[in-house]
């Protein structure tokens, strides 16, 4: 095999790895079609889109860099309060709020990354949890700014691009959240297929070899942690803007725990896990709450136990089988 032929094979193989699978196109077409299909469910669809973005954020560090977190709500909350406060006191422009929420969360991620990135999984779980708890109480005690336990009220959002007004049915809200999710997804997809993304997978697989291959492990982890924080901040900003309200609940432990659950349901490390998990989780929550509102936690607990004990392979196997039914595009090449 001559050099140039092998180079062609290498190039093709690398391209194949990043090419769009037909199942992916189908997924996004369905997401777009949800507008027409569920015109009365925009509010829950909006919640799903935001949860999906939040889960995508966790997937970037957990699935691609192997960093566990039980306090990802810290960044959701940071983004939510930042966007909410900006809207209340500075400008009601949604995109400015979105950018601001992402920036402050990214900064928080960068500042806390030295704490999180050292040590083992257990240390990381405890430190991320601790950071989220601290922020919860900080937001609680700064009542003059955040409204404390009453929540941040009096947020009104200007129309997006000065044109699209938020309506009470959540139509604009859902469109906005879904578009932000889609754009950030595209960026994430590009990043995980870059040399940077490859180095993260290397770190996840084997830190010793990554360092021995010239990868500056702590810097790379700090970079993806900050990026993931920005994504969570975007989810928080969307939450604040589309509900026009921020409560301390955004920092609550259950947010972080639910998120872990979402990613366990959907599977980590292929970007769609968070999105599929968010859909499954919200519908599950909705369905259970309809017939037994009080015992929601019981059912979700039972589901979690059964799922992790054996159902996971079953469901993930079903997803894989479904994806495999799509004809491989250009399989002959």
């Amino acid at each position: 095999m001559s050099g140039t032929v092998l180079e062609q094979h290498v190039r093709q193989s690398l391209r194949r790895a990043r090419r769009w699978h037909p199942a992916e196109l189908a997924f996004w077409l369905l997401a777009a079609a949800s507008f027409a299909l569920f015109p009365t469910r925009f509010l829950i669809l909006n919640e799903i889109a935001i949860l999906a973005l939040f889960a995508l954020s966790l997937d970037l560090i957990l699935g691609y860099a192997g960093i566990v977190s039980l306090g990802h709500a810290a960044f959701l909350g940071m983004g939510a309060y930042s966007a909410g406060l900006l809207a209340k006191y500075v400008t009601a422009d949604p995109l400015a709020g979105l950018a601001f929420g992402m920036a402050t969360s990214a900064l928080l991620g960068l500042l806390t990354s030295p704490l999180v990135l050292r040590g083992t999984d257990l240390t990381r779980l405890m430190i991320t949890l601790g950071v989220a708890l601290i922020l919860y109480e900080v937001a609680n005690s700064l009542a003059w700014l955040t409204g404390g336990a009453d929540g941040l009220q009096g947020i009104t959002m200007a129309p997006i691009f000065g044109t699209f007004d938020f309506d009470i049915f959540g139509r604009t809200a859902y469109l906005y959240s879904l578009l932000v999710l889609f754009i950030l997804f595209l960026i994430a997809r590009r990043i995980v297929n870059s040399p940077f993304g490859l180095s993260l997978r290397g770190i996840r697989d084997n830190q010793l070899r990554a360092a021995a291959s010239g990868v500056p492990v702590p810097w790379r982890l700090a970079a993806i942690y900050a990026l993931s924080a920005a994504y969570a901040g975007a989810a928080g900003a969307l939450l604040a803007q589309t509900t026009q309200f921020v409560s301390l609940d955004v920092f609550d432990f259950h947010r972080s725990a639910d998120l872990m659950l979402v990613l366990i349901i959907g599977g980590a490390g292929y970007l769609y896990g968070g999105l599929i998990g968010a859909i499954a989780f919200k519908f599950l929550q909705d369905a259970i709450a309809t017939f037994t509102p009080q015992y929601w936690m019981f059912w979700i607990g039972l589901f979690l136990v059964l799922f992790v004990l054996g159902g996971r392979e079953l469901i993930h196997g079903a997803i894989k089988a479904l994806v495999a039914r799509f004809p491989e595009r250009g399989a002959s090449s």
Binding site: L14, R18, R190, N193, S194, P195, F196, G197
Partner: peptide, 16 residues
Amino acid sequence: TAERLGRGMRLFQRLD
């Protein structure tokens, strides 16, 4: 190879 060539922080570079 990418690390050796200093590509490691290129977030939007396509490998191919």
